[in-house]
């Protein structure tokens, strides 16, 4: 495979990663890391650097549209960023201490758990109408969005803000450790613990992952983990894909979004566990 083949094929895969990542709020890193390590045999440290780039690309590309369409809960997202950025900064310093195999196993377990939690909530459709959550009320984190698929405005209330903050801290840690943008934990935290609608969880996760990733990106740049020949096709492809994916989310049902999310998580989780556990 010549460098030109590499760049072109990686760009196309990145477009797909961008579409998928923006749709389910995972940030594309979840596709990019396995593709680079398993398909192109790129060193995991460089793959994580590229993944951080893809996460920021998905986030900015998709959020530009989601924020304009009011799909994102801006206040909740910005509020929860307190925990994700703090987690990301602490995590960036642990990554050199942990061996690659352990990262794979840990990654696998994290994703398996996320998918289980999300699948359990597949029949829950109606958002909450009241909330006695003090933090959510004080910061007015509740919201409302227009769902083009259901053709109606859907107001919702937020609960479990403290648990949400705790999970977001872990999400930030995981993002810095594995470069997966932590959407895999952010979406279940908002959907499960805080009862945001699935589409809002996905759009808000998309909005947040860029900031989480940016908090550890400086470290990766200095350590030389951001290789231009890998980062360029990934960034361009993912940005194009995310812009396309952002147009799809509104038009499909929440249940479909949730099921796609679960399937992707299970696949990647199995791949990673295999990589970490088998010799």
């Amino acid at each position: 495979m010549t460098p030109l083949d590499f760049v072109l094929s990686l760009t196309l895969i990145s477009v797909a990663a961008g579409v998928l990542g923006s749709l389910i709020g995972l940030g594309g890193g979840v596709v990019i890391v396995p593709v680079l390590t398993l398909l192109y045999h790129v060193n995991i440290r460089l793959a994580i650097g590229a993944s951080i780039v893809s996460v920021i690309a998905t986030s900015s590309g998709a959020a530009a549209a989601y924020v304009r369409e009011r799909m994102t809960n801006l206040r909740a997202g910005m509020f929860l960023e307190i925990a994700t950025t703090t987690g990301a900064v602490s995590g960036a310093y642990l990554t050199t201490l942990l061996p690659t195999r352990f990262l794979f196993v840990f990654f696998g377990i994290v994703l398996a758990y996320s998918s289980f939690v999300t699948f359990q909530r597949r029949h829950v459709a109606e958002p909450l109408e009241v909330s006695s959550d003090r933090l959510a009320n004080y910061f007015n984190l509740h919201g409302s969005y227009y769902d083009p698929f259901e053709e109606r405005e859907i107001p919702y209330k937020v609960v479990g803000t403290k648990l949400g903050l705790a999970l977001m801290y872990v999400a930030g840690l995981v993002s810095a450790l594995l470069g997966i943008g932590s959407g895999a934990l952010k979406v279940p935290a908002m959907d499960g613990a805080m009862h945001l609608p699935m589409k809002v969880s996905s759009a808000t996760s998309n909005f947040m992952i860029g900031v989480t990733a940016a908090a550890s990106a400086g470290v990766y740049f200095i350590r030389g983990q951001i290789d231009p020949i890998i980062a360029a096709p990934v960034a361009v492809g993912v940005l194009v894909g995310a812009t396309v994916g952002a147009r799809v989310l509104g038009r499909i049902s929440s249940k479909s979004v949730r099921l796609v999310f679960v399937v992707v998580l299970v696949i990647i989780s199995v791949e990673m566990l295999q990589k970490g556990l088998l010799p």
Partner: peptide
Amino acid sequence: DGQGIVVLGVLILILTPVLRV
């Protein structure tokens, strides 16, 4: 140099979320 320009573009991408905050 192409590599430097790509890295510059990536840095602009990384700084976008910071600017948005």
